[in-house]
Amino acid sequence: MAALHSLPAPIFARLARNAAAALLILGALAACLPAQALRIKEVASVAGARSNKLTGYGLVVGLDGTGDQTTQMPITTQSLNNYLQQLGITLPTASLSQLQLKNVAAVMVTAEMPAFAQPGQTIDINVSSVGNAKSLKGGTLVITPLRGVDGEVYALAQGNVVIAGAGAAAGGSKVQINHLSAGRIPGGAQIERTIPTPLLEGASINLDLDSTDFQTARRVAQVINTRIGPGTARALDGRTVQVQAPQDANLRVNFLAELEEMPLELSAPAARVVVNARTGSVVLNQAVTLGPCAIAHGNLAITISSTPVISQPGAFSQGQTVLTQKTDIQIRQEPGTLLTLPPAPQLADVVRALNSLGATPQDLLAILQAIKAAGALNAELEVI
């Protein structure tokens, strides 16, 4: 700053004018920049390019005495016997009931097979106990086939179970951190079979919107037709947009890559208030408005307290000391003040108006339902 002030007045004035002009240019550029627009890939997905659920049943071995209690879980003993028979080991039937497999646990294995997964690729799996095992920590999942809904085997799972937790018990006391009966095996399953996809079939592809909205479907079709050409896309309904695509596989992949990156300006979402009845959470989106209304809200509190009272008999009366309870009941009703809420066209005004009630989140659930019933809440009320 001292160096600037030491400059001659004409030079300093010229620099000031240039700085002011630069600020005006930056402001104009900022005004010309588009608002944060969504891309098509963030509101829609390509039909057929989806993941598939896999599941299987297996055994976790190598536990430190925290496995299933076989007397209460005969399925574990039977599963181990079937597995040993596959390896050529046959146990006498009489000895099966005497096995104490404290180091073995029966588990369910679940995984999600991504789209276009090829044989040899690996995916993560989740391992969850189905018996009364205390912990799966330190165990190893033996080879387990993972099947789809069609019953076919699409992957094979095996590996060491990773559990981010610990626990200890002694003398009737128990300490546990996190959940010990479920874990994860990173890259624990290997793909053995591909799932065919209709992505490269036909002369067109379908874009499935994440939510049903006719306005969004129309705008997606308009953006594609503007960027690529008229007649390329058309909205079939409020959730599906059909797009003409090249037949060649390489050209279709490039076409979809460019399609997903197209910017999309969307209108304001439908006004909605989401209420979680279990936690008392209330979430409002920016389209929620509030009409004029008057609200009276008060609380009724009932307090019941018991005080122990000892009745001591008189001397030489041969009576007995008796412990009784004295119960005191108090009823307190707070006055319900009638508050007038002005119209609130903006979300900040709605929040300010609701905060003026001074109600707890649980009370706010009932208040919002009453405002909606009175027709003053211009939003859809959804209770989850």
Rank of each mutant, 00 (worst) to 15 (best):
A37F: 01
V162D: 12
N378I: 00
A373C: 04
A217P: 09
A348S: 05
T90D: 07
L99R: 05
D363W: 01
Q247I: 11
A235T: 14
G172L: 01
T76Q: 06
G65H: 02
N52V: 12
A370M: 02
T232N: 10
A168I: 01
P198I: 13
I367N: 06
A3R: 13
V60T: 12
G172C: 02
P10F: 12
Q325N: 12
Q215Y: 04
Y154R: 12
L256K: 10
A217Y: 10
Q244K: 11
K326C: 00
H297C: 10
N378H: 09
A3C: 08
V162M: 09
K41P: 01
A182T: 10
V104N: 09
A21L: 14
D64C: 08
L365M: 13
G291L: 04
E258Q: 14
A294P: 01
I123L: 14
S356P: 00
E152G: 14
I123F: 06
I123Y: 04
S128E: 06
T340Q: 11
A287C: 06
I89H: 11
S267D: 13
Y154G: 13
L101M: 09
L256I: 14
S45I: 04
P263Y: 09
N285K: 13
V130A: 10
R219L: 15
C32R: 06
Q320D: 09
T289F: 02
T71F: 09
H179D: 08
T144C: 08
A221T: 10
A353L: 01
L251P: 00
L26A: 15
P313N: 06
V309W: 01
T76K: 06
L15Y: 08
G202C: 00
L259M: 14
L26W: 12
G139V: 06
A182K: 05
A257D: 06
T232G: 12
G67I: 02
P342W: 03
L199C: 07
L354I: 05
I143H: 07
A344I: 03
A35C: 01
R352S: 15
F116P: 05
G231F: 01
N355R: 12
V322Q: 15
P292M: 09
K102Q: 14
A249F: 03
L87A: 13
L364G: 10
A348K: 00
M262C: 07
A105C: 07
N18Y: 05
Q85A: 15
D208C: 07
S79Y: 01
L136V: 13
T76N: 08
A31P: 00
L59Q: 14
N276H: 12
V243R: 04
G120S: 03
L323S: 10
V43C: 08
T76P: 02
A2L: 06
E258Y: 07
A111P: 00
A94K: 05
I75E: 15
Q176D: 11
G238T: 11
D68V: 08
T340Y: 03
Q247L: 09
T55M: 07
L38I: 08
R332S: 13
S281N: 15
E265M: 12
A189I: 04
I143P: 03
V142W: 01
G280I: 05
G62H: 02
P186G: 06
S45H: 02
G148C: 04
